[in-house]
Each structure stands twice: as C-alpha cells, then as structure tokens.
Design a protein around this nucleic acid. Structure first.
Length: 142
DNA sequence: CGAGTTTGACCTGCGC
DNA sequence: GCGCAGGTCAAACTCG
C-alpha cells in the first residue's frame, strides 16, 4: 500500500512534520476504502485570512472537529448541488494560522455556480504559492 | 420560509 | 474488548 506523498514546497521546510503526519494518515484513511470511493482527491494550502476560499461552488458545512496536533478545528463541507457529493475539508495550520489547508475529494458533476471564475482561475488568484499536490495517480486507483 | 450553520451525538476503524 | 480519533448526522438555530 502506497501512501500519498505530501509534497511541501522547498520554501516551507520550516513546517512542522506533525501536519505531514496527520495529513498522510488522513489520506491513508481514504485509501482503505478506495474500492468504493474512487474519487479524485487533492489538497493545497493557501495563505489567506479567510478559511473558505470562494471557488465558485456552493458549499454546505456539515461538521467541525478538533483534530489532534492542531489547535484549530477542521471544517467539513459538502457541495450543496443535488447529486454532487464532492467534499472538502478546511483546516488551518497548527503553527501558522495564516495558512489554510484545503482538501478536495471528488469531482463536480455540474457547472460552476459562479461562472465568472473557474476553479483554476480562483486557485491562481489565491496564491498557489504553497501548493500541496496529493497526486491522484500515486497509490490511488481512479 | 428556505438555505446554511452550529454542535453534540453517533458511527467506524485502528492500535493497544 | 476498549478507548481514542476522525468523519458524519441531524435537530435546533440563525440569517437573508
């Protein structure tokens, strides 16, 4: 069983390893059930004062959880579009509250609500300076 | 009044 | 088997 490699940019070597560990285990969790959940999953971190970046989709919050090794709660969102069960998790970095780690799971089966901006454009706008790429092809069958 | 948020309870998997 | 941690549910609540 391969584990996703969370690749941190070289400029972020000061990041504590506990985020890596916690994050890897989260991905590992998903891998166990990949026979049912064959969804694309990727994560990235943004340096933003707001938790929820506007990616053009409509999200409904369905949970909040304090996770270990992190003083900030993790928030769980689902796409509110009917029949679209894309999820995302949002969590701030335990040691740098400016950094928001966003994990997407699944792909949208419908167009963007806010068609003015595509998700890619939004990503571009939001900094990409710190992109965590959880490769969807690495140890994760699609 | 409908849609979204909050929050404690509940479920499940894993390690010991 | 038990306790812990992460993920989800759902009733109550808030807001536009």
């Amino acid at each position: 069983m391969e584990i996703h490699q969370v690749m941190l940019p070289t400029s972020s070597t000061s990041f504590s390893s506990d985020l890596n560990v916690a994050y890897s285990s989260t991905v590992h969790e998903a891998l166990r059930s990949d026979q049912e959940i064959r969804q694309q999953r990727f994560a990235f971190q943004t340096r933003s004062p707001v938790d929820v970046l506007d990616d053009g989709y409509q999200w409904r919050k369905y949970g909040k959880k304090i996770v270990k090794n992190n003083k900030f709660p993790r928030s769980y969102y689902k796409c509110s579009h009917r029949g679209c069960n894309v999820k995302k998790q949002i969590q701030r970095h335990s040691q740098d509250e400016q950094i928001v780690v966003t994990t997407y799971e699944g792909t949208h089966t419908h167009p963007v609500y806010n068609s003015a901006e595509s998700f890619d454009q939004t990503l571009g706008n939001f900094l990409i300076s710190n992109l965590i790429n959880v490769s969807p092809t690495l140890g994760y069958r699609i």
